[in-house]
Design a protein around this nucleic acid. Structure first.
Length: 666
RNA sequence: UCCCUGGUAGCUCAGCUGGUUAGAGCACAUGACUGUUAAUCAUGGGGUCGCUGGUUCAAGUCCAGCCCGGGGAGCCA
């Protein structure tokens, strides 16, 4: 088919008064005469005018929304006012029908939520076609920028075996059978006294918990089968640990066979839990009376899990560490919520039995450790969360490299700016310090903005209008002062604000919301900046992108360079590292980077301090042994940047098929 | 994972403190129309009120659990 794109048909004046063919999808068919045709080459439609005498009624009836149509005819100056040229159609052919009664996208405004559920068809809407054309412009612009600056495109592996990168939860990659994975044979070094302590103190409580639960929750049986039921092929575990699993299992089984009448009395031993409120209706229990008891128990368990985290367990398993870490967070959260803090609703306290169950769960992880030696790679492997460490290796030879590829995080995060699968750009440059890193980051952002302003003006104008309309629905206070295009121009033309973490804290301490106690989280040197703090700095105080450097070492990753007096971001208030975060209005952290620690002794000391295994990253440390040099880099989330340039607000709307917890349709 | 909020026609939403046959706009179907711009006008069809259980003479409406969506928080890019 010799086709002309609609973009060319509309823009290329030399085509006017010539005969061409176009093909696309019908947007609307008006007055039995006008087809608004779109082929995706531009957001604008070509108006194709049908001569009713030449096209019979049955064919005209097939020009339904989203039908694929090919039109041939002369491009002529339009009689109507909405467009410069239109096509006087001589022949028209329906390439693919679209049944209007079942086609979900209607010629009207749809909610983004609805279109997200129809992600396979949403590209046919103005908004999404504009977004994805711009996504292309941004992607291509990234390669363009780095190429112009002498960077080599570097492909970091997607499958990694290293588990010390420290950036979030990872997806496993395995060919082992999930139903029955091989288990490690040798028994692990386990701190039995600690287990016994818990067993003696809490097993009865757990059992009571299960009993009481059973009376009101018939599904509990299923739950126990799923989480605590011992599979028939359970290996024999030697010694007292085997007995313990057996003991736990039998008790749960016993309880399930008992009738509710037998449970009388045990309920009196109950501690406060999230289910207690349900019981207060039937049984005379006052929540407040037990709050003190509960807090004591939660504190006990917190200390217990903290001990386990510090290795008293004797086992150094990643899953185990994550498990205890998670529970520590939960208990800490519950404690802080249940005590004071009037601004928040009281969190329904979880009872100690819940934590005891959690403990048993952790125990289960240790007992059933999987043997990965027979797995595909002969070791535990996962999907990458960052190509940075590998990029560093390349940068320390090629000088300048950047990665641009998919990244995976198994975090259960459900927000408008997180995805489980996203695209990240990670440049890494030898002989570059933090200042150079900031210049590179700012230069990249500006290059990309300049590019979309140059190449995507049609789409930007549409998205600008869309955003303005959306904003007009919001209350006045929440509206942004600038339209999309103005905002992009503003960011392009003004330097980013550069401040240190210490300065940021000082600004926050002097700020109105802090003094009026409007911040939910405390502000003091050493804390991590919360969303509300970042938003204040970017959206209220500076009103432009801000780069914050020199964060406290305690809240940043091991590979970041420790600051000494005289370094940018050094503070007398505590140890800081050469980190930098670029914060954008409406999005928050769009770039996170740092100058890397190039001094072997400092790096090793810091890894040990953070409990990381230096043996596992031997290859990384080797670069510090052989010709180490200062270097720096950062990570840019592609989707977050696309969010910014398109003015969209949910990250799920700027990636074709979003992968998020509980959702991988299409 | 936590907090808040929602789930009623294909879509967007109304349905007050439980009470007759559950509504509107758009979409869709049929008809009209030689210039429309999300065309317009007339007529018509369309609903297990997210699921399960409970309270009640009576549940879209009240209660509990579960599922799904949206916003915010944490984790981060």
């Amino acid at each position: 088919m010799d086709l002309t794109s609609i973009k060319a048909a509309l823009d290329n004046e030399s085509l006017t008064n010539t005969t061409v063919s176009v093909a696309g999808w019908v947007r609307t068919f008006r007055n039995d005469r006008f087809i608004a045709l779109n082929d995706g080459s531009t957001i604008r439609n070509l108006q194709c005018v049908i001569d009713q005498e030449q096209v019979d009624a049955s064919t005209r009836g097939r020009f339904t929304t989203s039908a694929a149509v090919k039109c041939t005819g002369e491009l002529v100056a339009s009689q109507g006012s909405g467009q410069r040229v239109e096509m006087k159609v001589t022949t028209v052919e329906v390439l693919g029908d679209s049944d209007a009664t079942t086609y979900p996208i209607q010629p009207k405004k749809h909610s983004l939520e609805f279109l997200r559920e129809n992600a396979h068809l949403r590209f046919r809407t103005n908004t999404y076609s504009a977004v994805f054309r711009m996504r292309h412009q941004v992607s291509f612009g990234i390669h363009e920028y780095f190429d112009l600056n002498g960077y080599n495109y570097f492909h970091a592996p997607i499958i990694t075996a290293s588990d010390a990168e420290g950036a979030g939860e990872l997806f496993r990659v395995t060919t082992l059978p999930l139903e029955k994975p091989p288990r490690v044979k040798r028994s692990l070094p386990i701190n039995y006294p600690l287990f016994n302590e818990i067993l003696e103190r809490y097993c009865d409580t757990v059992i009571d918990y299960v009993k009481a639960h059973e009376t009101i929750q018939p599904q509990l049986g299923k739950y126990i089968d799923k989480h605590y039921g011992v599979p028939p092929d359970m290996p024999q575990i030697p010694g007292d640990t085997g007995l313990m699993v057996e003991y736990q299992y039998r008790h749960f089984r016993d309880l399930l066979s008992k009738k509710p009448d037998d449970l009388e009395g045990s309920i009196a031993d109950w501690r406060i839990g999230e289910y207690i409120e349900r019981f207060t209706a039937n049984i005379d229990i006052n929540l407040d009376e037990h709050m003190e008891d509960f807090n004591e128990e939660a504190k006990f368990f917190l200390s217990l899990f903290q001990r386990l985290q510090q290795g008293e367990m004797g086992a150094s398993l990643r899953d185990f560490k994550q498990g205890t870490d998670h529970i520590c967070k939960q208990i800490g959260y519950t404690l802080s919520k249940s005590q004071g803090d009037d601004s928040m609703r009281k969190h329904p306290a979880r009872g100690a039995p819940i934590y005891a169950l959690s403990f048993f769960n952790l125990f289960d992880i240790v007992q059933h450790q999987v043997d990965y030696s027979g797995d595909f790679f002969g070791r535990e492997s996962r999907l990458t969360v960052s190509g940075q460490l590998q990029a560093e290796l390349a940068a320390l030879a090629l000088g300048k490299v950047y990665t641009f590829g998919p990244t995976f995080r198994a975090e259960n995060s459900n927000t408008t700016r997180h995805l489980a699968e996203f695209w990240m750009i990670e440049p890494e440059c030898a002989f570059m310090d933090l200042k150079g890193d900031m210049d590179l980051a700012e230069g990249l952002c500006k290059h990309l903005i300049a590019r979309v302003l140059k190449n995507s003006m049609d789409d930007l104008q549409f998205l600008d209008a869309r955003l303005t309309e959306e904003e007009s629905q919001k209350p006045q206070v929440q509206r942004s002062e600038m339209g999309l295009i103005d905002r992009l121009k503003f960011v392009l033309e003004n330097p980013f604000e550069r401040i240190t973490y210490t300065e940021a804290i000082e600004i926050l301490l002097r700020s109105k919301p802090y003094q009026k106690k409007q911040f939910q989280f405390p502000v003091e040197w050493g804390i991590d900046l919360q969303s509300e703090h970042e938003r204040y700095l970017v959206e209220k105080h500076f009103k432009k992108p801000v780069i914050v450097t020199g964060y406290p070492a305690t809240i940043k990753a091991f590979y970041m360079r420790t600051n000494a007096p005289g370094d940018l971001g050094y503070s007398e208030k505590g140890k800081t590292v050469a980190a930098m975060d670029v914060l954008f209005p409406g999005i928050g952290e769009i770039i996170g980077g740092s100058q890397r620690e190039e001094r072997l002794d400092v790096l090793e000391a810091r890894m040990k301090e953070m409990g990381l295994d230096t043996d596992e990253l031997w290859w990384y440390l080797d670069t510090r042994k052989f010709g180490t040099v200062p270097h720096a880099g950062f990570g840019l989330g592609l989707e977050r940047f696309v969010l910014f340039v398109t003015g969209m607000s949910n990250i799920r709307d700027v990636i074709p098929f979003p992968r998020t917890p509980g959702s991988a349709e299409f």
